[in-house]
Design a protein around this nucleic acid. Structure first.
Lengths: 323, 323
DNA sequence: CTGAAAGCGCTTACAG
DNA sequence: CTGAAAGCGCTTACAG
């Protein structure tokens, strides 16, 4: 593999000049530029990026921290990030954590070691307080709201969005409403639970722990959820689930058991993934891909030295056939 | 940010010694090791990996080239790769191509520049011949079969697997069989088409171009596919689709139109993703995640200097309710 | 067990 | 417009 010195020597110029044409700097006589370019071509030279990174102090590579790429939510988020990153010629590396603390710490250590220029936390197990200790390590942003003012965040106003859905169900006459959340102690769930409690209070309904389903992530979870509903003595007339995959599982299972929807059971979901359109499930559209794009741009700013900033992504109720 | 020299100075040892403890080399007096470790801790030192990479000549980072992370097929493949990579402490970077040639070339250029130590092509638009030109660039492997003997590949025997499915349909009495493929000019589709033609020949049925659906990738494509089937004058009695997502779309749409399955229309799929289990769709189980694991290990070997190698991943017919 | 020194391959003030 | 030289921060024979 040729290096920059060989190129300089064979082209009969200085290393500096080669570097200049490599980086598209002005002030290189056209004649020399051509000569260098031709030599590069002939010797099949390619820069050793490790040297560039060491010299420049950064690598144009960011890290994306997420529990698993298997869930559509994160897939979409990732697509948004990837799309923006590609535009700017920024690479990204993936850190799958499965919500294991040590994996998240691993990613932060990579940041510290400059393996990456910055980090996007799509979701995390670590508490805000614990993460605060890493504040000086390097730039990172969160894809969820945080009251911590040092953190840059981009988020969907889950509380408001969830309340919108609940009010819609209430407006349709429902008072017996159950909900399905992903991880009970996650931030998103926290906000949704708040909205739930407030909505119940507003219509004078009691809060029942047993009507809050959790650990709902996959289609299979949705099927189980239906079974649980079916076994209940007092059945809620509506379920509001925080994830289209789960909803799809519940809906399909309900259909199989010939439950009248929305007659006997109204189903409302969140996300608006393709499957909810296919099945005609009413849902709160949340543009996750858009959030990914915002996230990337925000991290970029942060890496550029900007201060912390909080951003928000819009949501929308989509009425279909299940409510 | 402290560097290795500062650590050496404050610990009162040489840079070499610090490097030795950093890399866990033997032959460092326990006392000095402790001193160094403590200094590192106190000064919150972290290695600058760019320097390590430049010095060592590699980065323990591989690149994964795929059209899109949005499709479950690639999601699973990626999970397999990620799982193995994590075990070995290898990072990976994603190159989304959308089957654009220039994006694939971009990834190869990154390989040439040592941005990554090696590349896994999950799927590609580039022809084998064109890729052959990059053979000397650096190690890469393919997740599909190739007759090119210089390439390391790990693949599912799509032709045999597809034939298995077709024979199963035939055994069930079907002779009017349509198929759904992803990209008609992809390698996988090529093999499947071969199997299809051979199976038809074996039962003396003619090959009909109009019974080969293509560009079938998403749930929505599956819905369209059903509409097309519905409009047909002479209807196939069975459809064999190469992707569970598409099959799900077709199946759900068929159900909605109250088509008797498998009575009026038998449906067979490929993949065995969770959705096919939920919907009770018969399918050829293809362990894509496993392929991802194999792929990583194979690339690792290749980077280690091993010669090209061809590997194969098993498949299996799973009988459920749609045939 | 230990360290001085060369080397990895770039970039970038600085001086002309 | 051009180049010599210092610098980025490590690793690793080599000599002791």
């Amino acid at each position: 593999m040729a290096n920059i010195r060989e190129i300089a020597e064979t082209a009969g110029v200085s290393i500096t000049t080669v570097s200049r044409v490599l980086n598209g700097h002005p002030y290189v006589k056209e004649e020399k530029r051509q000569k260098v370019l031709e030599t590069i071509e002939r010797l099949e030279y390619a820069r050793n990026m490790h040297a560039v990174h060491l010299s420049k102090g950064f690598s144009n590579m960011i890290g994306v921290v997420l529990p698993t790429i298997g869930l559509p939510y994160f897939g979409e988020l990732l697509e948004g990030i990837a799309e923006e990153a590609a535009k700017e010629g920024v690479h990204f590396s993936l850190y799958q954590t499965n919500y294991q603390l040590e994996k998240e710490i691993f990613a932060l250590e990579q940041l510290k070691q400059r393996q990456v220029d910055g980090l996007i936390f799509c979701s995390k197990a670590m508490s805000d307080e614990a993460l605060l200790d890493w504040h000086e390590t390097g730039p990172f942003i969160l894809c969820q709201d945080s009251s911590e003012r040092y953190f840059s965040t981009v988020s969907i106003p889950h509380k408001d969005a969830f309340r919108l859905g609940l009010d819609f169900l209430i407006e349709k006459g429902h008072t017996k409403i159950a909900i399905g959340l992903a991880r009970k102690n996650g931030m998103n769930s926290h906000f949704r639970l708040e909205a739930y409690k407030e909505a119940l209070a507003a219509i004078g309904e009691p809060y029942r722990e047993e009507w809050v389903f959790e650990r709902s992530l996959t289609i299979t979870d949705g099927q189980k959820l239906f079974s649980e509903w079916r076994e209940m003595e007092e059945k809620p007339t509506a379920v509001f689930i925080a994830n289209d995959q789960v909803t799809a599982g519940m809906f399909l299972e309900a259909q199989r058991h010939q439950v009248d929807i929305p007659g006997s059971l109204a189903i409302l979901s969140c996300d608006n993934q393709p499957i909810s359109e296919v099945l005609g499930i009413s849902t709160i559209k949340i543009n996750i891909k858009e959030m990914g794009k915002h996230a990337f741009r925000l991290l970029r700013k942060r890496i550029g030295g900007a201060g912390p900033e909080k951003q928000t992504v819009p949501y929308k109720l989509i009425k279909r056939a299940t409510v």
